[in-house]
Design a protein around this nucleic acid. Structure first.
Lengths: 241, 241
DNA sequence: ACCTGAACACCGTTCAAGT
DNA sequence: ACCTGAACACCGTTCAAGT
């Protein structure tokens, strides 16, 4: 037996941070955040719970690594060569879809504000704002508006999926929310009554994009104001003064 | 006064859900979310942990009640008679300030999407969008953009304050985040490098308002487009086709 | 009715002991 | 070096027993 085949053999069975993180992702996806315990993880990996601590410092590091793996893959798939506005939409959708598929990763984003997942998202958006020539004074505001919007949606998606793992009836959940809304006095809560019906049947993803475009329109106004990159499309150019 | 007489004094006041919730808020504010245990709560109330369950179903109900108490007070303080745009800013600031003072309440918002705190915020924003005559088709988008932005900030504030209770050095925390950002390759992460310096010294509250105004500007563009409420100031009406 | 506090079924984490 | 699994110090929650 060669050294190589010994190593290959050992590598297939040996515990490693990678194998632990992949097992954690599988549990998080299948059972939800509450399902991930060191005991469950040890059972799945056919080892003792203490063995995991040889490769991973604690549960925080495990969650961080799992979330960064998911978000990293999602961000890698974003085409770097798109037009900046389309690129921002692509980054936002990559985050949205990753969190739709792995809601626990949405909650994790908030817990690791300097982690690689967050940095990739911020640069993915902000780098494209630079390419759009958003004026320096507005860069921070624009980036923060976009980031916070995306994080807000991420947090809501994570919360909506809390408890019920994977594919459980989202429409029924939103239906129940809408019903609790409409229990209130229509005179005192007109908006809530007006939009309740749309809550259950609306397309989350399309809704997410619509809100994003609204913010991009606000940023477009800043950009126009500096006369650097007039916005094309349905908005007419500014009238002359 | 002896410890025993203090205990007797506290026990003289009967337990009630209100007293339990107020004690929970005090612990959450003082020790953070990890500090709130039924044992700590029972000690503070000079009772047994089981007694609390007579008034409160479980920890979820306790957290929901505590969060709703905080957010309810914050929203009550918002003047109902303001001009709609100013009113939306006032609602957003009320949420921001409440969560700045009670970060745990920010995390809680996500966990109770049909709770009274969330409904008050949604109606507080959406009712004013109705007053602004935002066209029906855009109402949902505009409300969702504003809400998600506010929630995103709430979640970040909650995360930033995690662990370090109350007044611990926020600037130092953001400084550390900025340092981790700037460890990366400046060529690959130009935006992150550009804004890192502003992260530690910027005014969170002013920043929050700037992002909000950006979104309001985007909504203003929608409102203009429907010719219902032309926005005054620098933006001109649409050109004819 | 309301309260007590021990008991139960979990956790994350540690660590002496093994290979 | 890497792994085992019992042990420790917690939790939320329950419940027989008290007032």
């Amino acid at each position: 037996m060669t050294i190589d085949s010994l190593r290959a053999d050992k590598r297939a069975k040996a515990l490693s941070k990678d194998r632990i993180v992949e097992a954690a992702i599988a549990i998080l996806d299948g059972e939800g955040e509450a399902g991930l315990t060191f005991r469950a993880l040890a059972t799945r990996l056919a080892t003792g719970s203490g063995a995991i601590y040889w490769h991973v410092a604690d549960k925080t590091e495990l969650m961080t690594a799992a979330s960064n793996a998911i978000m990293g893959r999602a961000m890698e798939a974003v085409d770097a060569e798109m037009e900046p506005r389309a690129g921002i939409r692509a980054v936002a959708l990559a985050v949205f879809d990753a969190i739709d598929a792995h809601p626990w990763a949405g909650a994790q984003l908030f817990r690791d504000p300097a982690g690689s997942a967050m940095v990739e998202i911020i640069e993915g958006i902000g780098g494209r704002l630079l390419a759009l020539n958003v004026p320096g004074a507005a860069l921070f505001d624009a980036g923060s508006a976009l980031l916070n919007y995306i994080l807000g949606v991420a947090g809501q998606n994570a919360a909506n999926a809390r408890g019920h793992p994977a594919e459980v009836d989202r429409a029924a959940f939103l239906q129940a929310v809408a019903e609790r809304w409409t229990e209130r006095d229509p005179a005192a809560y007109p908006f809530v009554h007006r939009v309740a019906a749309r809550l259950a049947d609306h397309d989350d993803r399309a809704q997410f994009l619509a809100g994003l475009d609204l913010i991009l329109a606000g940023i477009g106004a800043l950009t126009e104001a500096s006369d650097v990159l007039p916005r094309s499309g349905r908005a007419a150019p500014r009238a002359e003064r």
